[in-house]
Simulated scan of single mutants.
Amino acid sequence: MMATTPCPLPSDYDEPCRHAEGADVSVLPRIFDSDINMAILRRRLPLDVEAGARAQCQADKALSVSWLGPPGDGLRGELEHHLHDLHTSAPLIEDILTLADAMAFLFDTASVGLRLRCLEAAMCPRFHCDNLPVRLVTTYSGPGSEWLPERAVNRQGLGAPKPGKPDIVTYPSALQQVNTGDIALLKGSGWVGNEQHPLVHRSPELAVGQRRLLLTIDPA
C-alpha cells in the first residue's frame, strides 16, 4: 500500500505535499519523482531488532560507528567490533546491512557513508536542510526525526540565527514526525532540480535520561 498523505495545513493551502509514504518498499523509489522530497517506508521493527537497539542504548559506553565503503563484509566486521552485546545485536546488524545494500542498489553506487550513533541530546535541534543529494534516516530507538511540509516553511529563516531573521515555521500545527523504525529518504539541496526545495527537518528533543539510536546512510 502506498499513498501521498495530506498535511494538516490551513484551508487556503493549495500546494500538494511533497512527500510519499507507505508500508511497501516500492514507496522508496518515489524519491526520484521531481515533486517529491521525502519518501517514508512505514514499518514496525521486529522484536529481535528492537532488543538489539535497546542493548546499545542501555550500555554504559557510548556508541558511535562511522563507515565509508562498500556495504559488505567490511561493514559487518566494523559493526560487530563496535556494537554492544553481539549476540543480542545480531538481528540489528543484519537490518543495518540490508539498508546499506538497499541504499547502494537504489542509487547505483558501490560505496555508502554510514553513521550509527546513540544520542543523549538532540544532534541538530534547529530546523535545517542537508547540503547533499539524499540521505536515509531511521531511528531504531527513541523518537524519530521531525520535519515540515513545504508550505509550513519560511526558507528565509534557515541558516544561522541572527537578529531580524524570520521564524522558520509558518504553521506550527503542520509539524510532522517520522515514527521509530520507519525508513525515510530525505532529499537535500544537492539533488539536481531540488535546490530550492530540500526537506526541512530537525532532531527531536529527548527527555532527561532518554537515548536515541540513529542510523544515517548516504550514497558515496
Rank of each mutant, 00 (worst) to 15 (best):
Y171V: 15
F127A: 05
P172L: 09
E146K: 15
E150G: 13
L136R: 05
Y140R: 03
A152M: 04
S141R: 14
V153E: 00
P161N: 09
P161S: 12
L136I: 04
P133K: 06
Q156M: 14
A160I: 15
T170S: 14
K165F: 13
C129E: 08
V137Y: 03
N131I: 15
G157D: 00
W147Y: 13
V134T: 07
G159N: 09
W147M: 03
G159A: 06
Y171G: 06
G144V: 02
R126P: 08
T170N: 11
P161Q: 13
A121T: 11
V169R: 02
T138Y: 02
L158T: 08
M123H: 03
R155F: 10
L132F: 12
V134A: 06
P149G: 06
N131A: 14
A174T: 09
G164S: 04
L175S: 13
P149R: 01
V134S: 05
A160H: 14
Q156R: 14
G157I: 05
T139W: 03
L136K: 06
A122Q: 11
L175N: 10
F127T: 01
S145A: 12
Q176N: 11
P143I: 00
G144C: 09
L148V: 03
P161T: 11
P163L: 00
A122C: 10
E146L: 15
A122H: 05
A122M: 12
N131G: 14
R126N: 09
Q156I: 10
A174I: 09
H128N: 04
P172R: 06
E146H: 13
C129T: 09
R126G: 08
Q156T: 14
Y140D: 05
Y140S: 02
G142Y: 00
P133G: 08
D167N: 14
L148F: 00
